[in-house]
Design a protein around this nucleic acid. Structure first.
Lengths: 367, 367
DNA sequence: CCTCTTGCCGAAACCGGTTTCGGTGCTGAA
DNA sequence: TTCAGCACCGAAACCGGTTTCGGCAAGAGG
């Protein structure tokens, strides 16, 4: 059953095993194991000797061998949702880089799987748990009511959220404060002179949608503008949906001179539709998105947006998850950060009043 | 040392172990193991009974437990290079999806790590090998002379290339035939009426650069155009480099009316520079790229390019690698596919002659 | 001086598999 | 009839760790 097409002369030095360390010190492997794992019934002097010798021999325990007894493989799990049209994909590499480098630093590894549907995701996670391939999970794209959280809670498997959720009980998380970004965006547009600022929300059910929407609302109130449902849309995280919602908002009696979007893909759809209607984006209509997708830098004009540092997010999440797996209290494992505003051409002073805009749109749509 | 914040009433059913299967059949676990692993000294009838009972109990071996004896963990390794400005990142998610789903189908898993430099990558792979976290590797972005291949060969660790390499001896691979794409692009441009077709190559040392460059050359010869070094550039896989090379090619005595690029990022740089010079891309100057990056769809006009199906590539590579690890001959594990041409606005009939173009550029650059 | 802790470590079982070795029972040839 | 040979399976060692249990010696307390 063994494949052996190796040239015999080329053989790497065999790994040091725990018994090698034990023998070199005249101890038993039991003592070495306990010394390295911080058991209290080992004297500090022997512990130091063991540590030193282990380093000298380049010994580190084989995670499989540990896992067979402990059930833990020093591995972080993540299941990526793929196949749907959300703008999160470009960041996956950076995100994984963050996770991976933080994991490597602690001598952990990263086990990655993908799923297309929610059931698929649950099944895949179940498989990884069952096979003990992952000791805990990073959960991106959290929902207000998230089945993954329910499942992991039930099985008491550690996890950490990239985002927040409706019932944060027992949840560790790292999140970017999208509410602050949206509020800042409203203030920015207001500062530019906009008085009709519309909003288009993101995917239904996702927690980020709820917070960004709340941030818009808080921003509107902060600058003393009325909240008008006629210029507020939602459920749009694709270009097509953005175009559709743009049509709806621009058809309002008092259309917005600026539209804030919960996602860049939606914002790009708004830009495209506005251009098609003969509106100059970043003049007749201002648009701000969120995510910092690379496409935004190539649309005309470039899209103002909020950039998220996915690598840093991955770093934080991996560290949080490792600490969670080691038993720390989830309430102590919560961190947040801010997105960085990229002030680009699509957001500028209004060059049309809402009334003029309405006229223009009416003419352009032939109504 | 054990964390136990689990509610005791919620306990998942324990996994079936090999001894459960053995006991249920009145056999020893040795027999069960050999039966499931295809040893010849087990009668077909017993083998069938074992298989059936294993399925009934939902038994499958724990890969760690196997790994401790066999050294193999049923895990595919991949180390992604991050941090440099290449346009491959958007596809990472799809690529991983392909790898992951093919691996899952065989009950394998995917261990992902990242590295920033080449030494970092070699060290990371070494760590994964040493820790037996990966039984083999997928190597993307292969170079003509690839250190990773040298290392894995020396250690006789199985691997499979996404791409090809200078010395394919003992290499299994999957690759997209970039040479065919480039040749097709030349023919396409020639068919549109272009007679001065320039070319800008990709990153030095990468094998894809060599094949795409050869494809351009073959295409040029096929349509009976002269190869002119004055309108051929190279080493450009970023926007900035694309802009720089565009300047150089357009400053030629007989500038190209169409520029073919080995990468989309380079092509986008060419487009940007051309626009800055007052040239209408997809009219005064045609541009074709390669990769199918999402940014291309948002530039003005949208970039004609070749799309690569990363998910399918991942599927093939995972299957090839698994077969390689199982001992199949690398020479039998070589597959190729074609990129799909996306005919978009940046490539069109020439609206200026080379001479006119030269005049225009001279005026625009003030020379 | 004797017992009782306490600190520290060794012996051995254990985790869940794989693999070596040896021993049946049966068949076929001498 | 006997014995070699083969097909098939059990017993036990093994992989590289962790954990339980118990034992020894030194120090504390009476």
């Amino acid at each position: 059953m063994l494949v052996s097409d190796s040239k015999p002369e080329e053989r790497r030095a065999p790994r040091a095993r725990i018994s090698d360390v034990a023998q070199a010190l005249g101890l038993t492997k039991a003592t070495v194991s306990r010394a390295l794992n911080g058991y209290p019934d080992i004297s500090e002097s022997t512990r130091a000797r063991v540590r030193h010798k282990a380093a000298e021999l380049g010994y580190s325990p084989l995670s499989h061998a540990q896992a067979i007894r402990t059930g833990r493989a020093r591995s972080l799990g993540i299941v990526l949702q793929v196949g749907d049209q959300d703008g999160q994909r470009p960041f996956v590499a950076d995100f994984l880089a963050g996770l991976s480098s933080a994991a490597s630093a602690e001598n952990w590894t990263l086990t990655v799987a993908t799923a297309t549907t929610e059931e698929d995701m649950l099944a895949t996670m179940g498989r990884l748990i069952d096979e003990r391939k992952a000791d805990g999970f990073v959960l991106p794209r959290t929902k207000v009511a998230d089945e993954r959280i329910r499942m992991l809670r039930r099985l008491s498997i550690p996890f950490v959220l990239f985002g927040r959720t409706g019932d944060p009980e027992s949840c560790a998380y790292f999140d970017i404060l999208g509410e602050d970004a949206m509020a800042l965006a409203v203030r920015h547009l207001h500062g530019l002179g906009h008085r009709r600022i519309g909003y288009i929300g993101g995917g239904d059910g996702f927690y980020y949608s709820a917070v960004r929407s709340a941030g818009y609302r808080a921003g509107i109130e902060a600058v003393d503008l009325p909240f008008d449902p006629a210029i507020v849309g939602g459920g749009a995280y694709t270009v097509d949906a953005g175009m559709r919602e743009a049509d709806r908002l621009l058809a309002a009696d008092e259309p917005p001179t600026a539209i804030l979007c919960a996602t860049d893909m939606c914002a790009l759809g708004v830009c495209r539709r506005a251009s098609a209607l003969g509106l100059r984006v970043g003049g007749d209509l201002s648009v701000i998105g969120y995510d910092g997708v690379p496409e935004g830098a190539w649309s005309t004009p470039p899209l103002a947006t909020f950039e998220v540092d996915s690598r840093v997010a991955g770093l934080h999440l991996a560290n949080l998850l490792i600490r969670r797996i080691r038993g720390e209290n989830p309430a102590d494992l919560r961190e947040t950060a801010h997105a960085r505003f990229l002030d680009r051409g699509s957001a500028a002073r209004p060059m049309m009043s809402s009334a003029e805009l309405r006229e223009h749109v009416a003419r352009a749509t032939g109504r």
